[in-house]
Design a protein around this nucleic acid. Structure first.
Length: 490
RNA sequence: GCACCGGUGGCGAAGUGGCUAACGCGCUGGUCUGCAAAACCAGUAUUCGUCGGUUCAAUUCCGACCCGGUGCUCCA
């Protein structure tokens, strides 16, 4: 089954395929000037969903993500912090990868840093100059001559006149035309710059992606992806630079992930609804729940991120995990119930079809929940047999290869976040409930659970209930069943 | 202002020119349980922003309007 993916360039849903060999995909990564927020991660999570879906279908990938480690904001913030930009960006790059791991986002095959590819960018600018697309301005900056590239605007469906009339493009006295964009910025006093064949300075924002993508993946990519905001001007400029230099299509397929809302409003610092992953972890929300919420709404739809939604995701994951455990560890009679087997096969088919249909994660999720209900029901009625259970476990594993929420690593992740908060002087932001919840280690919990089991055996229900209440106050939930007592962290 | 996207139950959200409008969470009642929890069962939108139009038939197509978002400017 090939996957159908909306292509911004053509405006239609098309099969995503590699021209040859592994699928060459380039993703615009973060500018490492601050901690990543949930909007950033919505994009990277959906790209992770794409990545995992492709891998699940046996498609080999060559996936590159860049790290923008030099730009205006970095220069400004590093100067304010009084540290060299390399030191400044390193801290946030590390935090970014830590966040990615906490959210279960897989590492791409290649990470490309802008500052490590200055020669490639310079070379590309030289090529563009030879072909008449680039010119050097009086101050030593280099610009791209947009009028030389008539296809400019084909991705974002803009026409040049509209852009020029938009008027708010920066007016730079040295440019030939207001809409020309910077390839290379002349040095300013006190700013980091590089001495190169085209003069001293630092790269413009767009050139790094063209240079690194083409260096690592070749002149034509199968897929290029990023947040919807990057469509214009960033991706449009990448196309202009790359196609101007090679005369070949830069990327066949373009994928853009929609922005999210937070509590129905756009997320912004001034609205007071701006959250980094770390903010949420310190409030006691689980990384898995954040992941699940951010991927539950398909990537082309606007997601409304709310705290109610986070609770919903927490509970929904809990239900899936409980079900997974039940199927895995339950004692089932030998054999196979044909009806359940058919339902499982149907769920698998629906699940695969949903993801293949432009990554419809909402439908894929629904297919799984449908099966949860019918299988639980059959299990309660004693009609679910061993073979059915293992089929279902296999299906859940297939689901989890993309959704990655079944394994409970939440306590571990939250402890790591708390350790960071401690070192960053932000431990005060951790909620009392969260600190209480992690105050007991697994062994201590188990000891109390064992004591309660003893109390129950001797019908000392008062003591048993007291222990249960005490544990609940620390966020630990007790479940008695025929097969013994289980516990879990809320 | 111009362009594009969206408005579906208490909340989130899928979807389709005509079958009972998925799925999750929540809530209510029941089964089970020492009591809980988990799980299951039943209930929870005569209706898909508003008003018109096309059609035998529209939530689904068209138009206007209202609301939210995005781009035109740094932004995932």
């Amino acid at each position: 089954m090939s996957i159908q993916l909306f292509n911004t360039l053509s405006g239609t849903v098309e099969p995503l395929a590699a021209a040859s060999g592994p699928l060459r995909m380039y993703v615009c990564g973060p500018t490492v000037y601050d901690y990543g927020h949930i909007g950033n991660f919505r994009t990277f999570l959906h790209i992770d969903v794409l990545r995992r879906t492709l891998l699940q279908q046996g498609i080999k990938l060559n996936h590159v993500m860049n790290i923008t480690d030099v730009d205006d904001k970095i220069i400004r913030n590093a100067a304010e912090a009084g540290v060299p930009i390399g030191e400044y960006t390193k801290k946030f790059e590390q935090a970014f990868f830590e966040d990615m791991a906490w959210l279960g986002i897989q590492q791409p095959e290649h990470i490309a840093r802008a500052t490590e590819h200055i020669p490639e960018m310079v070379h590309l600018i030289e090529t563009l100059e030879k072909r008449g697309y680039a010119y050097k301005a009086e101050d030593g900056s280099w610009y791209y001559r947009i009028e030389k590239f008539p296809e400019y605007g084909k991705l974002s469906k803009k026409d040049l006149e509209g852009i020029e009339q938009g008027a708010r493009v920066d007016v730079d006295e040295y440019k030939d035309s207001a809409s020309d964009f910077a390839l290379w910025k002349a040095p300013k006093p006190g700013e980091q710059s590089w001495q190169t064949e085209i003069g001293a300075g630092r790269p413009g924002w767009h050139i790094e992606c063209s240079a690194m993508a083409m260096k690592i993946l070749g002149e034509t990519l199968d897929l290029h992806a990023g947040g919807e905001d990057l469509m214009f001007p960033h991706h449009e400029n990448e196309i202009a630079q790359s196609e101007g230099a090679t005369g070949k299509p830069f990327a066949h397929h373009w994928m853009h992930v929609r922005f999210l809302l937070v509590e129905g409003r756009k997320m912004s610092k001034s609205e007071g609804n701006f959250y980094t992953l770390r903010d949420l972890l310190l409030k006691g929300y689980k990384a898995a729940a954040i992941r699940f919420l951010l991927i539950s709404v398909p990537y082309r739809h606007q997601l409304n991120f709310t705290f109610d939604g986070l609770m919903e995701s927490t509970n929904a994951i809990e239900r899936l995990r409980t079900f997974h455990q039940r199927m895995k560890t339950g004692k089932w009679a030998a054999g196979s119930n044909a009806e359940i087997s058919t339902q499982t096969a149907h769920a698998l088919q629906e699940y695969d079809a949903a993801l293949a249909n432009d990554l419809n994660t909402a439908e894929a999720r629904a297919a799984i929940f449908d099966l949860v209900r019918s299988a639980n029901s059959a299990a309660d009625a004693g009609q679910l047999l061993a073979e059915n259970a293992s089929e279902i476990v296999r299906l859940l594993e297939r689901f989890d290869a993309v959704f990655a929420v079944l394994e409970d690593k939440d306590a571990e992740t939250t402890r790591a976040a708390l350790a960071w908060a401690e070192s960053a002087g932000r431990i005060g932001e951790a909620t009392p409930e969260l600190l209480a919840a992690l105050s007991l280690g697994d062994d201590e919990v188990q000891a109390l659970v064992d004591e309660r089991t003893q109390a129950k055996a001797s019908r000392n229900f008062a003591r048993a209930d007291a222990i249960r209440r005490e544990l609940l106050e620390k966020g630990i939930l007790i479940e008695d069943s025929k097969d013994g007592t289980r516990w879990k962290r809320k």
